[in-house]
Simulated scan of single mutants.
Amino acid sequence: MDRLTLERRQVWLYLSTIIAGLLVGSAWPGVGRLFEALLWPTLIVLLYATFIQVPLLHLRDAFTDHRFLAATLTGNFLILPVLVWILVQALPPDPALRLGVLLVLFVPCTDWFITFSQLGGGNAARAIAVTPLNLLSQLLFLPVFLWLTLGTELSAVLGFSEVWPALLVVLVPLLAAAGSERWIEARGRGAVLRERLAWWPVPLLALVVFLIAGAQVGAVRGALGQLAVVVPLYALFLLLAALTAKGLATFMRLPADQGRTLAFSLGTRNSFVVLPFALALPAGWEIAAVVIVVQSLVELFGMVFYLWWVPRKLFR
């Protein structure tokens, strides 16, 4: 099996590991503490293996195509945040539920959107070039978006004592990946290491969702009714994201391959980068992490539809 085949079928792997985690967590309730302890180092390794695929030292490449860059930044950091805020108003007034949805829908994906762009006839070079800018922009804008939408309600539950461990989980792999990229380019022989690490994100993310499902089985049971509400919202978001890409591509006069890339950029979200922040929330807010995992599953099923719809109907 090659890596593209693995990534194309990853949704079934994640679904299987979630079911396995729920079964293990139900059979052995005491395993939750062990799973929570294993979750943080697994997330660090996952983020490192993901970030090292991002050309962090080539930020200037994103500015070579100003029209595509403008469309990407406008869609991801102006139009979609407004749409997300509107969609969230339809959710039950549960702050933990709304925070989880906002966390995951506010941030564009920086990894598998490149794969889906390639599979969907997009411009892989443009996708790779814009990825580091998307990553840095979301780290900058996410606190602003959350403050604007939640305000004092957020600061009451997510203070500095809860934020700094989650920040370390994100920043340490990010800095390590940047250092590794510099070493790879200086030595000229590290491409093999990067290629091997490219296989890691899918199995590591499967392990992460297994650990979350096993540790949060009680939260999942208590939130089944709420999950039935967020799934249609996530599906609607995917539809609106693609239509937004179509409108922006038409307005910016982008070629079809760049329009497809834009659709995959707007449709995919960075679920496991925001997971540390959801997991750092205090007791009683576990639903935030659960709805983030659910979003990744809905998104992957949505990408199966995107791979047919985007190149054949939306951007012929």
Rank of each mutant, 00 (worst) to 15 (best):
A166E: 01
L167N: 06
L167M: 14
L167T: 10
L167K: 12
L167G: 07
L168V: 15
L168S: 11
L168F: 13
V169P: 06
V169M: 14
V169D: 00
V169W: 04
V169A: 12
V170S: 08
V170Q: 09
V170A: 05
V170K: 09
V170N: 06
L171E: 01
L171H: 11
L171K: 13
V172C: 10
V172Q: 06
P173S: 13
L174A: 09
L174D: 02
L174V: 09
L174T: 00
L174M: 11
L175P: 11
L175F: 14
L175I: 10
L175C: 12
A176T: 04
A176C: 15
A176E: 08
A176H: 06
A176L: 15
A176I: 05
A176K: 07
A177T: 03
A178P: 00
A178H: 07
G179R: 12
G179W: 15
G179F: 15
S180F: 11
E181N: 14
E181S: 15
R182V: 09
W183D: 01
W183H: 05
W183S: 01
W183L: 15
I184S: 06
I184D: 00
I184F: 12
I184Q: 04
E185W: 09
E185I: 10
A186D: 02
A186I: 06
R187D: 04
R187V: 13
R187W: 03
R187C: 09
R189C: 12
R189T: 15
R189P: 10
R189A: 12
G190R: 06
A191Q: 15
A191I: 08
A191V: 05
A191T: 12
A191H: 14
V192N: 11
V192C: 03
V192T: 14
L193H: 11
L193E: 05
L193Q: 09
R194L: 14
R194V: 13
R194P: 10
E195K: 13
E195V: 02
E195Y: 03
E195M: 03
R196S: 08
L197Y: 02
L197A: 12
A198W: 05
A198G: 07
A198N: 06
W199G: 00
W199L: 02
W199E: 01
W199F: 10
W199P: 11
W199T: 02
W199C: 00
W200H: 01
W200C: 14
W200Y: 11
W200S: 14
W200N: 03
V202C: 07
V202D: 03
P203V: 09
P203W: 10
L204F: 06
L204K: 02
L204M: 10
L204Q: 03
L204T: 03
L205T: 13
L205S: 10
A206Y: 11
A206V: 06
A206N: 05
A206I: 08
A206Q: 08
L207E: 01
V208S: 02
V208E: 09
F210K: 02
F210P: 05
F210Q: 01
F210M: 01
L211S: 07
L211E: 07
L211I: 00
I212D: 04
I212K: 01
I212H: 03
A213Q: 04
